[in-house]
């Protein structure tokens, strides 16, 4: 459904040139959920934006639903792939009601029957008719992210790109959104590509996972292998260690005057 062949993105020229994405290739099958993990600046969001057609100067080949897409995307190409952004506070127009936000894509694509489509999309993401004429600031973070998901789904795309869809949300709301995405994927047979820095979140939603560092994929692995810590690349191992969180040595914690036994940074850097 998604095939990337040696995709590269650079910003700037000459001495200030930055290769944000270098020779990234991967394939995602129809109905599959694929994850991209890495730290800030690793290029994972840039890959997503290139697939969405938001970076016109991306090099390499991108094919969606078996068809190569060029620099200029047709309306049909754009309808095929939709995106949900990280920050539900920044990705919704503050002066548009939920209804306007959802009607816009319908109008652009001349789909018609806007009223019914909006009502259905809202119901699908667990919002009621009472939310339809509210402004984003009248909604909670979780409700806003539901609106963003509804806006992506209203064009009935086959591919959903998710850029850290839950990292701005509380954990209880995160669980709700992750459950919603799981259900939508099942009901619509969606292909999902998700970016996150949280290994547990990505392993929850995705079967296969690519690990990015400095613009390149260093390892392609599976949720299964992450869970059992059987990953090959040292960077992936480091990410796994970091994700387990801060751990002090046994017995060290309760006595404030104990000097540090070992330099805690040695194991990290």
């Amino acid at each position: 459904m998604i095939a990337l062949q040696k995709v590269g993105v650079s910003f700037g020229t000459g001495a200030t040139r930055i290769d944000a994405v270098r020779d990234v290739s991967f394939v995602v099958d129809a109905g599959e959920s694929f994850g991209l993990v890495g730290e800030s600046g690793s290029g994972k969001s840039t890959v997503l934006r290139a697939i969405a057609g938001l970076i016109a100067h991306a090099r390499g080949d991108i094919a969606l639903a078996g068809k190569p897409v060029g620099r200029r995307r047709s309306k049909a190409d754009r309808k095929l792939v939709q995106m949900v952004f990280q920050d539900p506070y920044g990705s919704l127009h503050p002066e548009h009601t939920v209804d306007q936000i959802l009607v816009d894509p319908i109008a652009i694509h001349r789909l018609g029957d806007a009223g019914r489509r909006v009502a259905r999309a809202l119901a699908e993401v667990g919002l009621g008719p009472e939310h339809r004429f509210r402004y984003p600031h009248q909604l909670s973070g979780g409700q806003r992210q539901r609106v963003a998901i509804a806006r992506a789904l209203i064009l009935e795309p086959r591919i959903l790109l998710l850029d850290e869809p839950t990292s701005a949300l509380d954990v209880s709301v995160q669980a709700e959104i992750l459950n919603l995405l799981t259900r939508l994927r099942r009901e619509h047979g969606l292909t999902m590509l998700m970016v996150s820095h949280d290994l547990a979140v990505i392993a929850h939603l995705c079967e296969r996972i690519a690990v990015m560092s400095h613009g390149a994929i260093v390892e392609q692995t599976t949720a299964e292998r992450l869970a059992t810590s059987t990953v090959d690349h040292p960077y992936t191992q480091e990410l796994l260690r970091s994700n387990k969180g801060f751990r002090r040595e046994e017995g060290e914690g309760l006595c404030p005057s104990t000097p540090a036994k070992a330099d805690p940074l040695q194991s990290i850097t």
Binding site: Q174, E176, A200
Partner: peptide, 20 residues
């Protein structure tokens, strides 16, 4: 308890996360 349960966990994949 509800907060802890709603966290996705590596190595303990559940089809659905318990919601608070």
């Amino acid at each position: 308890r509800g907060l802890l349960a709603s966290l996705p966990e590596l190595g303990h994949r559940r089809p659905e996360l318990p919601q608070l």
